[in-house]
């Protein structure tokens, strides 16, 4: 069965007819060709596919695109300014070496951005708890925590 989808992705309206079983990440990567959002596990464990739906961080591999009908979706491609200037959270990851292979990074950055306004001056421990849903196989998390702290400070 096909369903008609209308939503905003990174501020632009999109419409498409897709199979009802299409996940949000399949739609983002395969229909919209926005491949910045990664698929690490496709089983809701790793958080690499994290995007914002109406401002909330969700794992896009674990929801149907139909569940985001009419929503405002933001992917990693939507963060940087139109002139290419990095978003403060992206800049903080670059500055503090918050990535190695970079596979987890789009999800980490999207999860971290959602914390704005929800936590104030978080401790390292709180940042780790808030990023519980994102797994990194490379960094050992130390620099990710430093980056998130700096990024949140720059965003406020």
């Amino acid at each position: 069965m096909s369903v008609n989808i209308t939503m905003k992705v990174n501020g632009k309206s999109v419409t498409a007819a897709v199979e009802a079983s299409t996940t949000l990440v399949e739609f983002i990567r395969e229909h919209l060709r926005l491949t910045g959002t990664h698929v690490g596990c496709n089983t809701s464990q790793c958080g690499a596919c994290t995007v914002h739906v109406n401002g909330r961080a969700v794992k896009s591999c674990n929801m149907l695109v139909a569940q985001a009908q009419g929503a405002d979706v933001m992917t990693i491609e939507g963060l940087a300014a139109a002139n290419g200037d990095m978003h403060p959270m992206q800049a903080a990851f670059k500055e503090h070496h918050g990535l190695q292979c970079g596979f987890c990074t789009p999800g980490m950055v999207m999860s971290a951005c959602e914390l704005k306004g929800k936590v104030t001056n978080p401790s390292d421990q709180e940042i780790r708890a808030c990023l519980d849903g994102n797994i990194c196989r490379c960094t050992g998390y130390q620099n990710i925590v430093t980056s998130v702290k700096a990024g949140l400070a720059a965003m406020s």
Partner: peptide
């Protein structure tokens, strides 16, 4: 429960 992303859905 779970993690932030799971709790958001």
């Amino acid at each position: 429960i779970g993690d932030r992303q799971v709790r958001n859905m």
